[in-house]
Design a protein around this nucleic acid. Structure first.
Length: 879
DNA sequence: CCTGGTTGGGAA
C-alpha cells in the first residue's frame, strides 16, 4: 500500500539514479582498464610511445592512449592481427610486431595506419602475408622488416601502394623465387639467405627502381644475363656461397649489359680470375673480397676503365704489380687489405694510375722501396697498418709521393723512418714493434714539416729517440703546424728519471693536445712545456711524477684540461696554476695527496668546472674544510664516491666520502669567530642607533652634499604680472607711510614703470569690502606683495594679521610672490614668530639701509625680486 | 647496407 501511494517520480528514482550513474560507471571501468594497460605497457608520453614488449599479450591491447605514434609489442604471443586491431591508433608511425607467432593478418589490418612508416614483422616463424592489398593505406611506408619469417612467398603487390620504400629486409627466409613487379622506388632490398636458385625470367621478376639488392647466401645455380641486365638496380651483391664460374660469368655479363655501377662478389670461392673475365664494362665499384684469390695476372682488370674503387681485401695475393691494374684510368681507391702481400712493385715499375687511396693493411710486407709507389703522384692516403714485419719504408724525394697526406704505420716494425713528404698531415706509428737495441733517433720529421697530427703511442720510444742531446735537437723541431701529438705508452726516462728534456716541444707553437700518458715520467724539467702557447689539453696520466715545479705550467695560458691522474703527487705549489686562467678540468685522482693548499686553487677557482681528486689519502680534518666546502659548491666532482678520507682523518670520517665531512659540526665553532660575531653585532647596533638618532641631520647633510654636487633647478611660475588684477600690493604700517612715499614710490615709478596697478596700503583696498576680505582679495590678486617691516609694525596685530594672510597665500599657491623689506634693524627678541618662520623658510627679504651708497643695490635687488615669481622650494635650505 | 682483421654479419 505504501508503494502505491508513492508519487510516480519517487517510484522511478532508482531507475533515474542508475541512468545517471551508468555512464560514469562505464567511464570509471574504462579508466581502470587504461590504468591497467599503462601498468602493463610502459607509456612514454614525450615520444608517444607504448612499450608493450614481453608482456604475455595474445592480442593488440585496446586500452592505450589513442594518440600513440610508436607501438612496440615484441616478444608476446600474438597469433593474429585483425582489421580492428589498430583502429584505435590511427597515428602509429612505428609498429614493432617482431618475435611473436603471427600466423594470420587480415588484409585490412593496417588500413587505419595512414602514418605508418616503419613496420617490423621479423621473427614470426609462421608468418603468411595476405595475398593482396596489405599496405593499401600505407603511403608513407619506408621500412619493412620481414627477417626470418620462413616466408615462402612475398605477394607481388606488397609494395604496390607505397611509392618510396627505403628498405625491405627479407633476409633469412625461404623464398625460392621473387615476384616484385608492382612497386615504385625501393632503395635497399635484402634478399640474402634465401633459397633462390635461378635468376631467370621465370623465377626472378623484379621491377622496382632500387639502389642495392643483396642476393648473397642464395644457392644460385643458374643466371640469365638478361635478367641481371634488366634489373633496375644500381648495385648488386652476391656471395657467401660458392658460385660456379659459369654463374659468375653470367652475372658479370649481365652487369656489363646494363648501366649498373656496383658489383660485389664476396666469399664465393672465386679463387682464379680468368684473364678474359672482366670484359669491357662501365662498372664503377667492384668488390671481390674473401674469395681466396692467390694471384693476379697482368692486365686482368685492364678493361675496367671506368672503375673507381676496387676492393680485393681478404684474398691470398702475394705480389702486387702495377701491370695488373694497367689501364684503370679512373681508379681512385684500391683496397688490398688482408692479403698475403710480401712484394709491392718489386720491379720498380711506374704505376699508370691516378690512385688517391691505397689500403695495404694486414699483409706480409717487410721492405718497401723508395720506388714502390712511383707514379702515384696523387696518392693521399697510404694505409700500411698491421704489416707486422715491415721494417723498411723509404719515402724519399725520388718516391714522388708529393701529395701524400696520411700514412698509417700502426703495428709495423719500422726501425727507421724518414719520410720526405711535404704535404703529410697525419702520421700514425702506434704499437710499433721497434727493436730495443737501437739507441740513436730513428724517426726524422724535418722533411715533413706540414704534419698536424702525430701519434707514436706504445712504440718503445726512448728519450734518445725524440731528443738528440749531442746537438740539442728535438724530433719535433720545425713542426710548427702540429696540432695533436700523442706519445703515450712509451718509456721515456726509465734510465734517466730526472731529465725529461727541457725544450723538446719548444717549437710546437700550434700544438693543442699533448699526450704523455704512462710514459714512466718521474720528473719534468721546469721548461719541459715551454713554447706550447696553444696547448689546450695536457695528459700526463699514469706516470710517476712526485713533484711539479711551480713554473711547469706557466707557459700554458690556453690550457683547459690537465690530467695528472695516477701519479705520485703529494703537494701542489701555490703558484702552480697562476697562469692557467682557462683551466676547466683538473684531474688528480689516484695520487698521494693528504692535504691541499687553498691558495693553489685561487687562480683557477672561477674557470674550473670539473675536478677529480678521487683515490687520494686525504686527512679529513678542519684544515681542509675549505676544500670540502668548495667541492660541495658548483663544481662537478668526478667520482665523488671515491673521494674518501684516509685513516689519518678525524675519527668519524675514516674511510668515508669526503663530502660526508660536516665541517660545521665536526670542526666546532671558531674561537675568533665566536668572539667577533657578537662584537660585530653590537657595533652594527650602535651604528644603527647613532644613524637613526641623527637621521635628519644626516639627511640634511646628504642633501646639501647632493646640492653641492649637482645643484638644483629653479622653477619659475609661468604667469607674469599681466595675468593678475594688480601688479604690486604693498603692506605697511601707517608709521612707515613716509618711507613709502619718499623712497618707494619714486623708485618704483622709475625702475618699474610697467607696474601701474599697484595697491599701496589700506587706503587702496577695494571700498565697501570687509577689511580682512579686502586684504585677502588684494593678496590673492596681486602679482607681488611687498611687506615692509619695522619695529612698530611687528607689534601691530592687524599688521601681523595681514602678514599671516600673505604667508598663507604663499603656502597655498606655492609661489614666491611675497617680498619682505626690513626698514630697520629689529632686535631678535622682538621679531614675531611669523616673521621668524618666514625667514627660516628661506623666503626672499631685503634690508633697507640709510646709507645712500647702498640704495642702488637695494633697488636693483628689489626690482629683481619683483619681476620674477619662483615656485616655492621648501627643500632648499636657508642660506 | 655495414665493418673489420679468427672472417661475413646483421636481429634476438
Amino acid at each position: 500500500m505504501a508503494f502505491i501511494r508513492q508519487a510516480p517520480l519517487l517510484r522511478c528514482l532508482p531507475l533515474v539514479v542508475l541512468c545517471v550513474l551508468t555512464p560514469t560507471l562505464i567511464q570509471t571501468i574504462h579508466q581502470d582498464a587504461m590504468f591497467t594497460a599503462s601498468m602493463i605497457c610502459h607509456y612514454e608520453a614525450e615520444q608517444k610511445k607504448a612499450d608493450c614488449s614481453d608482456r604475455g599479450l595474445d592480442s593488440i591491447p585496446q586500452n592505450l592512449p589513442d594518440d600513440i605514434k610508436v607501438l612496440d609489442v615484441t616478444r608476446n604471443n600474438i597469433t593474429f592481427i585483425l582489421s580492428t586491431s589498430f583502429q584505435r591508433y590511427p597515428l602509429i608511425q612505428v609498429l614493432d610486431l617482431s618475435l611473436n607467432d603471427i600466423r594470420m593478418i587480415e588484409s585490412e589490418s593496417f588500413y587505419p595506419l595512414k602514418e605508418l612508416n616503419h613496420l617490423i614483422l621479423s621473427f614470426n616463424p609462421n608468418l603468411v602475408l595476405p595475398a593482396t592489398d596489405l599496405f593499401r593505406g600505407s603511403k608513407n611506408l619506408s621500412t619493412l622488416d620481414l627477417i626470418q619469417c620462413n616466408l615462402k612467398l612475398l605477394p607481388n603487390d606488397t609494395l604496390k601502394w607505397s611509392p618510396s620504400v627505403e628498405n625491405i629486409n627479407l633476409m633469412i627466409n625461404r623464398l625460392t623465387f621473387v615476384n616484385m613487379s608492382l612497386c615504385g622506388r625501393l632503395s635497399f632490398v635484402d634478399l640474402s639467405s634465401n633459397e633462390i636458385e635461378h635468376l631467370t625470367a621465370e623465377s626472378f621478376i623484379f621491377g622496382c627502381q632500387s639502389d642495392y639488392i643483396d642476393l648473397s647466401r642464395n644457392p644460385i645455380k643458374s643466371v640469365d644475363p638478361n635478367v641481371i641486365a634488366s634489373l633496375s638496380a644500381r648495385s648488386l651483391s652476391f656471395g657467401s656461397y660458392p658460385l660456379s664460374l659459369e654463374v659468375l660469368k653470367d652475372i658479370y655479363s649481365g652487369i656489363c649489359r646494363s648501366e649498373k655501377v656496383g658489383l660485389a662478389i664476396i666469399y664465393s670461392n672465386f679463387t682464379v680470375l680468368p684473364l678474359d673475365f672482366f670484359r669491357n664494362c662501365s662498372l664503377t665499384f667492384l668488390t671481390l673480397s674473401g674469395n681466396g684469390i692467390q694471384s693476379l695476372s697482368p692486365y686482368v682488370f685492364s678493361n675496367l676503365t671506368r672503375l673507381v674503387e676496387l676492393h680485393l681485401s681478404q684474398n691470398n695475393i702475394v705480389t702486387v704489380e702495377p701491370i695488373f691494374f694497367q689501364g684503370m684510368r679512373e681508379l681512385k681507391v684500391l683496397n688490398l687489405d688482408n692479403n698475403k702481400i710480401k712484394y709491392i712493385n718489386p720491379n720498380s715499375d711506374v704505376w699508370a694510375l691516378d690512385l688517391n687511396v691505397l689500403y695495404l693493411c694486414t699483409n706480409s710486407l717487410t721492405e718497401i722501396s723508395e720506388f714502390a709507389f712511383l707514379g702515384l703522384r696523387n696518392l693521399t692516403l697510404l694505409d700500411l697498418r698491421f704489416n707486422k714485419d715491415l721494417i723498411v719504408l723509404n719515402i724519399t724525394s725520388f718516391s714522388e709521393l708529393t701529395e701524400i697526406q696520411t700514412i698509417d704505420l700502426n703495428q709495423c716494425s719500422m726501425s727507421t723512418f724518414h719520410p720526405v713528404a711535404p704535404n703529410l698531415t697525419t702520421l700514425s706509428m702506434n704499437n710499433m714493434n721497434i727493436p730495443s737495441t737501437y739507441t740513436t733517433p730513428r724517426i726524422f720529421l724535418k722533411d715533413s714539416q706540414g704534419i698536424k697530427d702525430l701519434e707514436i703511442r706504445k712504440s718503445s720510444l726512448s728519450t734518445a729517440d725524440i731528443w738528440d742531446k749531442t746537438v740539442n735537437v728535438s724530433l719535433f723541431d720545425g713542426l710548427s703546424k702540429l696540432i695533436t701529438l700523442d706519445l703515450s705508452d712509451n718509456s721515456f726516462d726509465i734510465r734517466f728519471p730526472d731529465i725529461f728534456p727541457a725544450r723538446i716541444f719548444e717549437q710546437l707553437a700550434a700544438l693543442q693536445k699533448l699526450g704523455l700518458e704512462t710514459c714512466h715520467i718521474s720528473g719534468l724539467h721546469p721548461l719541459a712545456f715551454s713554447g706550447l702557447e696553444s696547448l689546450r689539453v695536457l695528459n700526463l696520466r699514469g706516470n710517476m711524477i712526485q713533484q711539479l715545479n711551480f713554473e711547469i705550467f706557466k707557459m700554458l695560458d690556453q690550457v683547459t684540461i690537465i690530467n695528472l691522474d695516477g701519479n705520485l703527487l703529494t703537494y701542489l705549489d701555490e703558484q702552480l696554476f697562476s697562469n692557467n686562467p682557462r683551466l676547466t678540468t683538473l684531474l688528480l685522482s689516484n695520487n698521494r695527496f693528504t692535504r691541499l693548499n687553498q691558495t693553489t686553487f685561487e687562480p683557477i677557482k672561477s674557470s674550473l668546472l670539473s675536478l677529480d681528486f678521487s683515490l687520494n689519502p686525504f686527512s679529513c680534518n678542519c684544515d681542509i674544510r675549505w676544500f670540502r666546502d668548495w667541492m660541495s659548491g658548483h663544481i662537478f666532482v668526478i667520482d665523488e664516491d671515491k673521494t674518501l678520507c684516509s685513516l689519518a682523518s678525524l675519527e668519524p670520517l675514516r674511510g668515508k666520502p669526503l663530502l660526508n665531512f660536516d665541517t660545521s659540526k665536526l670542526c666546532g665553532l671558531n674561537v675568533v669567530l665566536v668572539c667577533l660575531t657578537p662584537l660585530a653585532g653590537i657595533i652594527v647596533v650602535v651604528i644603527v642607533v647613532v644613524l637613526y638618532h641623527n637621521r635628519w641631520q644626516l639627511k640634511q647633510k646628504l642633501f646639501l652634499f647632493k646640492l653641492m654636487a649637482i645643484g638644483y633647478k629653479e622653477m619659475r611660475d609661468a604667469r607674469d604680472y599681466k595675468d593678475y588684477e594688480f601688479d604690486l600690493n604693498i603692506i605697511f604700517y601707517d608709521d612707515d607711510e613716509e618711507w613709502v612715499r619718499q623712497q618707494l614710490r619714486p623708485a618704483l615709478e622709475e625702475r618699474l614703470p610697467q607696474f601701474q596697478r599697484n595697491v599701496f596700503g589700506d587706503q587702496d583696498l577695494i571700498p565697501g569690502m570687509h577689511y580682512l576680505d579686502a586684504v585677502d582679495y588684494v593678496v590673492s590678486h596681486s602679482y607681488k606683495t611687498l611687506i615692509l617691516l619695522s619695529r612698530a609694525a611687528v607689534h601691530d596685530r592687524w599688521f601681523m594679521l595681514k602678514i599671516r594672510t600673505a604667508m598663507d597665500h604663499v603656502s597655498d599657491t606655492e609661489t614666491e610672490f611675497v617680498v619682505v623689506v626690513f626698514l630697520e634693524d629689529i632686535p631678535d627678541e622682538e621679531i614675531p614668530f611669523l616673521a621668524r618662520l618666514y625667514l627660516s623658510d628661506g623666503r626672499p627679504y631685503l634690508h633697507w639701509t640709510e646709507d645712500v651708497r647702498g640704495h642702488d643695490f637695494f633697488w636693483n635687488k628689489l626690482v629683481k625680486n619683483l619681476t620674477i615669481n619662483l615656485r616655492t622650494n621648501d627643500l632648499i635650505p636657508n642660506e
